[in-house]
Simulated assay, not measured.
Amino acid sequence: MAIGKRGRAARTYFVRKLTLPSILKPRLDELSAASGALYSQVLTTFWRTLRRSAGKRKDHRRKAVFLSSGTLQKLFPKDPAGLLHSHSCDAVVDAFIASMDSARTRKKTDPKARFPRRCKRFFKVTFKSSAIRVRDGQLILSTGDRTNPLVIPWAFDLPVNVEIGWRACGGYELRAMYVDTRPVQTPLGDGV
């Protein structure tokens, strides 16, 4: 186990990838578009709030307002189309905040690094543990529509987290994350 930022032991995970059949493409396009629309709303709201709160540069009395992850999650509890689970909406906000943190860290060493500014038409769909079930050899991923969850044939254990995104070579890919419980190997010698 690795040690995290706050001195606690961080969990390690392993990922199981699965290429999804093309018959699911219309439903996945719909979910991915809803996720992209939510990401674009979060991005736009963050930058507009920051720009409007700062005002003119000569006015020193005004303070810039940086919206936090919790505030953005309260502002956007659902996506515009109502297709995503509420925790999937939280994951979209978390992804935006993570990209802001990453850009802030990179700016310390690379002055050309940029903050996220582009709206996205499609974005990955993340399902947290509260939206995942395995029943009768099927992975059931809960969406905002209670009557129409995403059902995928599944022959593995219950994952901690599931992410569905577009592969570089085309088609959708499911990435299931599991806690790594394998024992850490002890080094055999002094060399690499």
Rank of each mutant, 00 (worst) to 15 (best):
A2D: 10
G4E: 11
R6P: 03
R6M: 09
R8V: 07
F14N: 05
V15K: 07
V15G: 03
L18I: 11
S22L: 14
L24H: 05
K25W: 09
R27F: 07
E30Y: 09
L38S: 00
Q41F: 05
T45Q: 09
W47Q: 03
W47N: 03
T49L: 06
A54K: 13
A54L: 08
K56H: 15
K56I: 10
R57I: 13
H60N: 12
R62Q: 14
K63W: 11
F66I: 14
G70S: 10
G70Y: 06
T71C: 06
Q73I: 04
K74H: 12
P80S: 05
G82E: 08
L84H: 03
H85L: 08
S86R: 14
H87V: 06
A91L: 03
V92E: 01
D94G: 11
A95K: 02
A95W: 04
A95G: 12
F96V: 06
M100G: 09
D101A: 15
S102P: 05
P111Q: 11
A113E: 04
P116F: 06
R117W: 10
R118P: 00
K120Q: 12
R121V: 12
F123D: 00
S129P: 00
S130Y: 02
A131N: 07
V134A: 02
R135Q: 15
R135H: 13
I140Y: 01
S142Y: 00
S142M: 06
T143G: 05
G144A: 10
R146E: 07
T147G: 05
T147V: 07
T147A: 11
N148G: 02
P149M: 10
L150P: 00
L150V: 01
V151D: 00
V151K: 05
L158H: 08
P159I: 01
V160R: 04
N161G: 03
A168Q: 08
C169S: 14
E173C: 15
Y178N: 00
D180E: 02
T181Y: 05
R182A: 03
V184P: 01
Q185I: 01
V192A: 13
